[in-house]
């Protein structure tokens, strides 16, 4: 059973109680002749651990870019705890921690400098930044590499330092695009621990991922996106409807029937 999609009239600030951490209404983006996001409306309840899943090219990154203020939508609106991202970006951005996918880091800084930079950019005072940067580097296992230039980091380490830059200002909402990509299992486990703790204490997390299993275990809610459309959204239990999330996902998105067709690949 899929939860019915929220069908509030567009352009009205959400009135549901309590106010959702993120509310999207009719969010749409077109690149040249390709519709990347086709009018998505979605509420992310405060205190939820929200998974955003979809095949490659589904529009996950595009949608998240419009939520985080990196990409101006063609139509639609986004609110973060009531602040309109596109009318009052500074208020909305102050509440969000963002891990964008596929962007560079200021990698000629050392790890500690990069995290400090992110804190100071947000207008935090020096002592708080120093203390939190130390904590983050410690928890993420980057203490030894804190003095190395980020350009010399491995992909997984770079992902972790980028996560630290998203956490430093203690945001109310975390938007993480593919946070577990290239991260080793041990680090992934510690990141999951950090995020679970964050949610348990009132924070809201939105993650995009390809890994259904991870989303099913980790998230409280999930939204399935394909071809720029929202196919299903709700609690993980409601969306998977008794089956595994992976099966439900394949069923929703379609495809996946063409297994076992490559007989020439059988070497024996």
């Amino acid at each position: 059973m899929t939860m019915p999609l929220p069908s509030l009239p567009p352009a009205t600030p959400p009135v549901t109680q309590p106010a959702p951490a993120i509310a999207m209404r009719g969010l749409a983006k077109r690149f040249a002749d390709k519709v990347a996001v086709n009018g998505i409306s979605l509420d992310v309840p405060a205190g939820s651990f929200y998974g955003l899943v979809g095949p490659n090219g589904a529009g996950k990154t595009t949608a998240l870019s419009m939520v985080t203020g990196l990409l101006r939508p063609d139509a639609g609106q986004v609110w973060v705890h009531g602040a309109d991202v596109w009318a009052d970006p500074r208020a909305a951005k102050a509440m969000m921690g963002v891990l964008a996918d596929g962007v560079r880091l200021f990698d000629r800084l050392t790890g500690r400098q990069l995290v400090t930079y992110a804190g100071l950019l947000r207008g935090m005072d020096r002592d708080t930044v120093a203390a939190r940067a130390g904590d983050l580097l410690h928890v993420l296992g980057l203490e030894e590499s804190a003095g190395k230039l980020v350009v010399d980091y491995s992909a997984g380490m770079a992902k972790k330092i980028a996560l630290a830059t998203a956490l430093i200002h203690a945001p109310r909402v975390l938007v993480l695009d593919e946070p577990f990509e290239a991260v080793d299992p041990v680090s992934a486990a510690s990141i999951r621990g950090i995020l679970a703790d964050y949610v348990a204490h009132g924070g809201t997390v939105v993650v995009s991922s390809h890994v259904m299993d991870l989303v099913q275990r980790m998230c409280s809610h999930v939204a399935v996106i394909a071809g720029g459309n929202l196919l299903a959204a709700g609690t993980v239990d409601a969306v998977r409807a008794g089956g595994s999330l992976e099966d439900r996902f394949v069923e929703l998105v379609g495809g996946g029937s063409a297994t076992g067709g490559l007989s020439w690949l059988h070497t024996s």
Partner: peptide, 24 residues
């Protein structure tokens, strides 16, 4: 590659957004 302890220019510029941009 080289390692550097401390914050370098970040410790010398004022702890404000513009100071951070300058240090970076």
């Amino acid at each position: 590659g080289r390692t550097a302890s401390g914050l370098g220019a970040f410790a010398r510029f004022p702890a404000t957004p513009w100071g951070a941009v300058a240090a970076r």
